[in-house]
């Protein structure tokens, strides 16, 4: 899956994903910006450890959950990307201590 982008006059925005710099357009949701950047996995599922990417992009499916500026479980499709934002993948399949 890859996207090409139509030309725009929108300002460019810089943020980071798992510490890597990513360029987006002002007005992009975090989810759109990451898909445009070719990110292949936003999170892994808690139970089976399967990779997920956004499905609905309209706040319904919650498959775009990300850690944004230190806060986990945020909907990437509902948050507008901002300069300097720190976004992290949400790996929820880690070992559970009992």
């Amino acid at each position: 899956m890859s996207f090409t982008r139509t030309p725009t006059a929108a300002r460019s925005v810089q943020f980071s994903f798992d510490g890597m710099p990513v360029q987006a357009r002002e007005g992009d949701s975090v989810a759109a910006a990451l898909l445009a950047a070719g990110i292949d996995r936003f999170r892994t599922t808690p139970k089976q450890g399967k990779p997920r990417l956004p499905y609905c992009m309209m706040g319904i499916c919650f498959d775009c959950l990300l850690e944004i500026d230190g806060e986990a479980n945020r909907q990437g499709c509902m948050v507008e990307v901002r300069d300097g934002m720190q976004v992290r993948r949400q790996d929820q399949s880690r070992e559970v201590r009992l």
Binding site: P46, L65, A72, N73, R94, V96, R97
Partner: peptide, 9 residues
Amino acid sequence: TAPMAPFVS
């Protein structure tokens, strides 16, 4: 809550 990293048993 939504899932969190394990912190309490």
